[in-house]
Design a protein around this nucleic acid. Sequence first.
RNA 1: GCGCUUGUGGCUCAAUGGAUAGAGCGCUGGCCUCCGGAGCCAGUUGUUGGGGGUUCAAGUCCCUCCAAGCGCGCCA
Length: 548
Amino acid sequence: MKQKITFSLKKGIERLEAKRLLKSPLPEKIPLSLSVAPQFGDLTTNIALQLKSEKRPMILANILAESLKEIELIEKVEVKEPGFINIFLKKELFYQVLSSVLKEGEKFGSSQIGKREKVLIEFVSANPTGPLTIAHGRQAALGEAMAKILIACGYQVTKEYYLNDVGVQIDLLGESLSARYQEILDLPFSMPVDGYFGEYLKEMAKDLKDKYGKELLSKPKKFFSDYARDSILNGIKKDLSDFKVHFDSWVREGKFHQTGKIKKSLSLLEKKGYLYRKDEALWFKSTFFGDEKDRVLQKRDGAYTYLAPDIGYHQNKYERGYHSLIDLFGPDHDGYLPRLKGALIALGHPTQSLSIIIVQLTTLYQGKKKLSMSTRKGEFIALRELIKEVGADVARYFFLSRKSQSHLDFDLELAKKNSSENPAYYLQYAHSRVCSIMKFAREKGISCERRIKLSCLSSLKEKEELDLLRLLFRFPYLIEASGRTLQVQPILSFLQELAGDFHSYYNKFRIVTKERDLTRARLLLTKGVGTVLRNGLRLLGISAPEKM
RNA sequence: GCGCUUGUGGCUCAAUGGAUAGAGCGCUGGCCUCCGGAGCCAGUUGUUGGGGGUUCAAGUCCCUCCAAGCGCGCCA
């Protein structure tokens, strides 16, 4: 429908051009958006306001509006000051939408705009030095949702977790565990200054003592760091699976050190002239790409900095055939971006091929008290505790109901207290209500499972019914927009509106009545609403229960 | 000090530069002999941090000031 309208508008504009009414070049894109309020129709365009002309926008708008009236399924076209063109669609179109919802089922809302393009989305990637925190939970919820949305838009998506499994942090982790082990054996011990002080290492040390007694005292450092790393990693994997987040691929940083990939990327940079030596270290000219200073890639002692393997890793993503990369990072990485982006541009990759999304922190409150979140100091609320307190669905709802660049305040007490009146349940309740109505109808022997007759839908005449149909009509466009902008939150707002309208409708009208055609039509509408709710919730990773 | 992000009812947050700034929580008062009351209906709450500017149109863009969070290593 949208395509037909933009096509017609385009032709209209070309005619204006031919009459030499325009001063500006033809616009590349015709803006056509879903209207914000019912009195402005279903679709609206401000194109007449954007064209530069000697004529007033209202005049242009009227000319363009004329040509739209020819299109099938358009009820009427109105032009409003200062030059909006508002398009009202016919009821029949909405009946058709409902019938495609019912026909397509769980596919409704999907599209092929991604053209099977390969996309790699990397998120969480927490170091295996401690349990996942709430901040990681937010990234996990967002990344998982984005991936599902992109898949629905027809992209080939790989979800990847990059594991920093080597280096100073892991050494420190091992030393910390080793110290805790000595502590629990009542031997003198000293924690490294920058070590990890969380309770989880004490517990791990206790496990070691229970299993092996004093046997491990002679083990080398590497034993402790490997042990700590692997058992924390197992914990992370379990947390993720409890949070219903699944990764297609796990990549270890260690692999890049071994295979010489880092060296290869660096020599490529060198060939292009972006590297130099100073003070016995190897530097990258990141200032050339807008960074505040140049960065060291290889230290005086020959070891790589964090940046070097990361360049190798990203280069490797491109080599694996991905056209576009998405990274979700925490806000502590924002100063880091210019160097990474700079390096990838230096390697010849188009700047638009890399989208980096900074996911802001979540500040956790217990009532008025702010809880700190440092993994090293051991002060944090683990994701698993949050899930235990409020459940995975509620946690997801909170994470996704804010746009990613907003700081999010999460009051644990409130979330617990309000658990029975939680906004997350509002959506799920609407879905269960749909299921319950369908069940009621089935038990009464009323079936609407057979072939859908459009003629029966014409009994849907109430304003509330048409409004619900309008919402169903919007859904596919919303998913497309979400796939383009990587904004997840609008889907949640939409579902909230759909659930709200359905709840109101249910309270105002009876679905199952004595009139057969009306009942059948309303049941189909109910079923369609349920399908869209379920599809939307699935994209967000929130379950859609049939009963609550 | 510099950089990034944020500032919207009492609280937590929405609003592709568009038309009357919306939800939830809270508070007040109503609604089940009938498809689930985890719901619905009505009411209450706003100089969108302050000040300038751009635009037919600014919560949204630009400048400036104020406030909060984060970041400014040959750490990761």
